[in-house]
């Protein structure tokens, strides 16, 4: 039984779905950020897999994944910095307690 592209796509879809559940349900803002990383990785797996199967001689999928990793790193650095700043001000990291911008 060979592994086809469909396997990778299904894997990435499941990882993406799990990431969405994490984003929507984790109370801790750090947890939300970490769930976001799952989404990035799901996308990255797709990139690499499609690249390998559709254009085997090219490695553009790899290059894109490198950029995804770099940008994800930048995103998490900023996100964590904001969470840290928020924690200092409000003494909490729970997303549902940061709701002053409401009606």
């Amino acid at each position: 039984m060979t592994i086809t592209l469909a396997h990778y796509v299904v894997l990435s879809a499941l990882l993406f779905a799990i990431g969405i559940i994490g984003i929507l349900t984790r109370r801790n803002a750090i947890g939300i950020l970490m769930s976001l990383e799952l989404l990035f990785n799901a996308a990255a797996i797709n990139m690499v897999a499609f690249s390998k199967y559709l254009t085997p001689s090219e490695i553009y999928g790899d290059i894109f994944t490198i950029f995804i990793i770099a940008i994800a790193a930048a995103e998490s650095v900023l996100g964590l910095a904001i969470i840290l700043a928020m924690f200092r001000k409000r003494e909490t990291v729970n997303a549902d307690e940061m709701n002053i911008m409401k009606y």
Binding site: I23, L24, I32, A95, D96, N99, I100, K102, Y103
Partner: peptide, 17 residues
Amino acid sequence: LRLTVNGGVQSYALIIF
């Protein structure tokens, strides 16, 4: 309708998704 604008990031995300 303004009750839906509860300031919670995750409820917004839920609506968007």
